[in-house]
Amino acid sequence: MTDHEELLKLFYNLLKRMKKEWNNQLQGINHSQYLILKSLNHSGPQKAAQLAELTQTTPGAITSATDKLVVEGYAERKGDKEDRRVVYLEITEKGKAFVESLTQEQNKVTMKFFQGLPDEDIQHLIRIYHKISNNLEQLEQLEQ
């Protein structure tokens, strides 16, 4: 196995295991619903099309995903005052508290991933993550 093959295998394996651990923290909602709540908490009310782009799903799938968030009281639908055809999803206070609690738990779990790494390795990872982030930004610029 080449170094590149081993890197890819380890990377995908780590992503899969990390996602599993993060999903264990979600307490009754799925990953898409968590992303929706985080986005609403960070960016304010949004239309289904915006949320669909965020979660890489269809507006129809967003309606289904958001139904549970509304029923649970984490979000509410509000019509646009100027155009009644436009509906925004808005996070509630209960939703804000819920997503902040989930985020704290996910951060605790994520820190456990790096437990036991020496400071030197942490510094290497920071440098590597910056480089990967820059690579992704360059790819995004090429797509525009």
Rank of each mutant, 00 (worst) to 15 (best):
F114R: 05
L139Q: 09
N107S: 09
D119A: 06
N23Q: 03
H124Y: 09
R84Y: 12
D119G: 04
Q104I: 05
Q25P: 08
H124F: 00
T103C: 09
K20G: 04
Q106R: 02
M18A: 06
I29A: 04
D83C: 09
L117K: 02
Y74L: 10
K38C: 07
K20Y: 07
L14W: 03
M18K: 07
V87W: 04
H124P: 07
E5I: 15
L40P: 11
G95R: 09
L35Q: 05
L125G: 01
A75I: 12
W22H: 02
E105T: 12
Q144R: 11
D80F: 04
N41F: 13
K78F: 02
A61Q: 11
S43K: 12
T110E: 03
E137G: 04
R17E: 00
E76P: 11
Q33G: 03
N24T: 13
Q50V: 10
G60Q: 05
E100Y: 13
T66C: 02
A65Q: 03
Y88C: 01
P45R: 06
L35P: 01
D67K: 10
A65D: 03
T66W: 08
T103M: 10
I36L: 11
L14H: 06
E120M: 06
Q33N: 01
E143V: 09
L117H: 00
N107C: 03
E143M: 08
Y12S: 07
T63E: 01
A65R: 10
Q50Y: 12
E82R: 11
H42S: 12
I126P: 01
F114K: 02
Q50H: 04
L117I: 03
G73I: 10
Q104F: 01
E72M: 11
E5A: 15
I128S: 08
E90A: 15
S39E: 06
G28M: 12
G28F: 11
I36V: 07
A75C: 08
T55F: 05
N24F: 04
G116H: 00
L40G: 06
D83L: 07
A49Q: 13
K9H: 10
E21G: 04
G28T: 14
G28N: 13
K94G: 14
K94V: 01
L35M: 05
V70A: 02
G95C: 08
E72S: 13
Y74F: 11
H124R: 15
K96C: 13
R77C: 09
T66R: 07
A75N: 01
Q104V: 02
